[in-house]
């Protein structure tokens, strides 16, 4: 990927918008459930990232996501 999006900052921005609080300390290793993000908010975050990047992530890809890094790599795969 030449035009590589930096997805971690995007995650932080979108998550902050959805959950109305700061996600500045988040790293790719952060476990999503530890961040206090419930599954509803999680799907909204995914939805907003899909819209911004004009991609569609199949639901099956979301099943095994544990960390923020997992999510970022799933999204990256769709950007190829």
């Amino acid at each position: 990927m030449t035009d590589k999006h930096d997805l971690l900052p995007m995650f932080k921005t979108v998550a902050a918008r959805v959950d109305k609080r700061s996600f500045d300390d988040v790293t790719r290793a952060s476990v999503i459930t530890d961040l206090g993000v419930d599954s509803l908010s999680m799907m909204q975050i995914v939805g907003e990232m899909e819209t911004e990047l004009s991609i569609q992530i199949p639901d099956e890809d979301l099943v095994e996501i544990v960390t923020v890094g997992d999510l970022c790599s799933r999204v990256e795969r769709r950007l190829v």
């Binding site: 799907m43 909204q44 939805g47 907003e48």
Partner: peptide
């Protein structure tokens, strides 16, 4: 089931 909604209200309703 096909697609999980990405809209908060729909998510809450389905939950």
């Amino acid at each position: 089931r096909n697609k999980i909604p990405r809209i908060k209200k729909d998510l809450e309703d389905i939950y």
